[in-house]
């Protein structure tokens, strides 16, 4: 189990992620009750079934999934989880930046998969606010040091839309 970090604390994860087992398809997989994070393919195939009667819906985006395809649906989601299959696969950073900056997604944006201490800073900058830190890693040290290794940033991003040169006083 990953360790979920939110607002500088390790918290209990109330969500489960729907996995499509062997022999199942997005069309056939059973839709469990409760707070469920649905893969994009399931959401696209079963939207009409998922929406009625559910208060909390989550979405899982894989690196190949295009944010554009789900942009019109974002109001349905209480959490969007962006999957990093390996921490060196940086596509999720652009996914997050687009969700926040272009499509103005406001609610929980969670990094899942190979989420490690040294990427937390970048993740926070592009707009993540929830981090499923890989199991076995030191969550306390990650919270203490991982988010703010640098005291200032040059570029504009989600967390700071003005680049440093527009914030200079002198």
């Amino acid at each position: 189990m990953a360790q979920l970090i939110q607002q500088n604390n390790v918290t209990v994860d109330a969500w489960t992620t729907l996995e499509i087992g062997e022999g199942e398809t997005p069309d056939s997989v059973a839709l469990p009750a409760g707070k469920v994070i649905f893969p994009l393919a399931v959401w696209q195939a079963r939207k009409a079934e998922i929406i009625p009667g559910r208060e909390h819906i989550g979405l899982l985006l894989l690196p190949d999934d295009k944010v554009e395809d789900v942009a019109a649906d974002l109001a349905h989601f209480a959490v969007v989880a962006v999957h990093f299959p390996k921490f060196v696969d940086g596509r999720g950073y652009s996914t997050a930046a687009l969700l926040r900056q272009r499509y103005h997604y406001q609610r929980e944006l969670r990094a899942v998969g190979d989420v490690l201490h040294d990427q937390l800073f970048f993740m926070q900058r592009v707009g993540f606010d929830s981090y499923a830190l890989k199991d076995g890693k030191d969550a306390i040290h990650a919270i203490g040091k991982g988010f703010a290794p640098f005291s200032e940033t040059y570029q504009a991003s989600t967390d700071q839309p003005a680049p440093h040169f527009r914030r200079r006083t002198a």
């Binding site: 696969d89 940086g90 950073y93 800073f121 970048f122 592009v126 940033t153 040059y154 040169f165």
Partner: peptide
């Protein structure tokens, strides 16, 4: 130099 600053620790493009 302006480009150097922009590239330094760019959050979206650290894992190209």
């Amino acid at each position: 130099e302006i480009l150097r600053q922009w590239t330094t620790f760019h959050p979206e493009f650290a894992f190209l």
